[in-house]
Design a protein around this nucleic acid. Structure first.
Length: 461
DNA sequence: CCTCAAATAT
DNA sequence: TATATTTGAG
């Protein structure tokens, strides 16, 4: 029987992960190209991976009648957005270079300190980037150095002069701090920075991770302890949240296991009446709903417009061709082929924000894609609308983009569909092999489709 | 120095 | 409105 565990895997030696995954070799050649769910790297960091996964979509897959819907929804726009959210350095609009050793020359907008520009730490070379990614026009030359103290050691800012105030009522200073009334430049926690942060935390252990140590390990000169502390606070908060959700999910899996009706041994009339491509409900898991499956923490906050655009983007069905419904019943399940390189990109996108993103993508020839703003519905419930069969041009385009999975990708897709359809990223679970899945399906009354026939069915019009 | 929560920015 | 980040009290 297929087993589902939403709990994190047993292993977690996160800090070593990079060494194991170094160079990112073998990933594409490995078994699960599209949404890999197994492999050393994941096993090494599954604990960590949870922090990157949005569980907000509790559940795909069942419709109101309790039948599983044949849609593993993937929003390609979002994938692409994820894929392209870290622009190359030269793609940025305004750049301020740090001083050789200590103080960053943070870019600050004249009138509104910190409103239109962001300070970004690029890498350990000490390059700070003031990227007005979202405000293309405002950025040109309005930069001036700021007296912000960002050297880790040298921050002797004596801020604790309170205690005379008395109670728990914190100072209601209306936006202006004591040192000049300038709010510090907002730090842009890029995926890379966040990755390093997480790595440091992992290395120290979640319990012993304190800002000063993290800062040390990160070895970046564009962050203060305060920045780290703040991020750590958020990180812990998210973590807590996720763990709660995990527990919830585990409960769900348990319930389903307990109450799910036994799989039919033989083909009953009901089964016969049911279209063969309806996956038996006993395989599905959490409660019904559509969802945007891929989301990670650490993204830049959304544009309103971007969010709208993303929301308007139809969710897409992903369907292994063997299992696709007959074309006359569901033409949307039969996308047309595209360059397999696309799957490579999809794969990269899916991995982009994971802890090993850098390692994995190092050797990956990434074709620059148009950058989409990233929606950021961290814990909000996405408004899901199942897409109508591909009538619109956009939907059609997306279908084309989804097409032509390899054997490996089909395998992976099936694994995802059956084990954790709402999660393109791994949870430390190994998906069943194609054969075992097919055999499982067969046991449950789904007629087997010979691969050859399936291929023909899927590929031809 | 750390953590938490309010304040503030986006 | 929601989320991210800063600020400052404890």
């Amino acid at each position: 029987m297929l087993e589902v565990s939403t709990l994190r895997g047993p292993t977690s030696s996160g800090s070593k992960a990079e060494q194991h995954c170094g160079g990112g070799g073998g990933f594409v050649g490995d078994h699960h190209v599209v949404f890999p769910t197994s492999g050393d790297c994941f096993a090494m960091v599954d604990d960590n991976l949870l922090d990157y996964i949005d569980f907000s979509c509790d559940v795909p897959f069942f419709d109101a009648d309790g039948d599983i819907l044949p849609d593993l929804e993937v929003d390609t726009t979002e994938l692409l957005a994820e894929f392209s959210s870290t622009p190359p350095a030269d793609d940025l609009l305004a750049v301020a270079v740090f001083g050789a050793d200590d103080q960053p020359a943070a870019a600050v907008a004249q009138e509104k300190p910190s409103s239109s520009l962001e300070q970004t730490c690029g890498d350990d070379k000490g390059v700070a980037v003031a990227a007005a990614r979202r405000k293309l026009q405002t950025t040109t030359t309005t930069t001036t150095t700021e007296e912000e103290d960002s050297s880790p050691a040298g921050s002797g800012a004596n801020k604790s002069s309170a205690s005379a105030e008395g109670h728990s009522s914190k100072k209601k200073s209306a936006g202006k701090n004591s040192n000049g009334g300038k709010r510090k430049v907002k730090v842009d926690w890029t995926p890379e920075l966040h990755r390093r942060f997480v790595q440091a935390v992992e290395q120290l252990g979640i319990d012993k991770a304190v800002p000063s140590r993290i800062l040390e390990i990160m070895g970046t000169d564009c962050l203060t302890r305060h920045n780290i502390a703040s991020h750590l606070q958020k990180y812990r908060s998210h973590r807590k949240h996720l763990m709660a959700r995990e527990a919830e999910a585990a409960t769900w899996a348990q319930k389903r296991h307990m109450y799910a009706p036994p799989a039919p041994r033989t083909t009953t009339t009901t089964d016969a009446a049911r279209p063969p491509w309806v996956v038996p409900t006993t395989i599905g898991f959490p409660p019904p709903r559509f969802c945007r499956p891929l989301h990670v923490w650490g993204h830049p906050p959304p544009h309103a417009a971007a969010a709208e655009a993303a929301a308007a983007t139809p969710m897409l069905p992903v369907w292994p061709r063997h299992l696709a419904p007959p074309r006359h019943l569901a033409p949307w399940a039969h996308p047309t082929p595209v360059d397999p390189a696309f799957w490579h990109q999809q794969y990269s996108a899916a991995r982009k924000w994971g802890p090993q993103a850098a390692a994995v993508t190092q050797g990956t020839p990434c074709v620059p894609l148009p950058r989409f703003p990233v929606p950021h519905p961290i814990y909000s419930r996405p408004a899901m609308v199942p897409p109508p069969p591909s009538t619109t041009k956009l939907a059609q385009l997306h279908l084309e983009l989804q097409a032509h999975p390899s054997k490996e990708s089909i395998d992976a897709a099936i694994g995802d569909v059956l084990v954790k359809p709402w999660l393109p990223l791994p949870l430390g679970l190994k998906p069943p092999s194609l054969d075992s899945v097919m055999s499982e399906l067969h046991k449950q009354g789904v007629p087997k489709i010979p691969p050859a026939a399936a291929t023909t069915t899927g590929a031809t019009g």
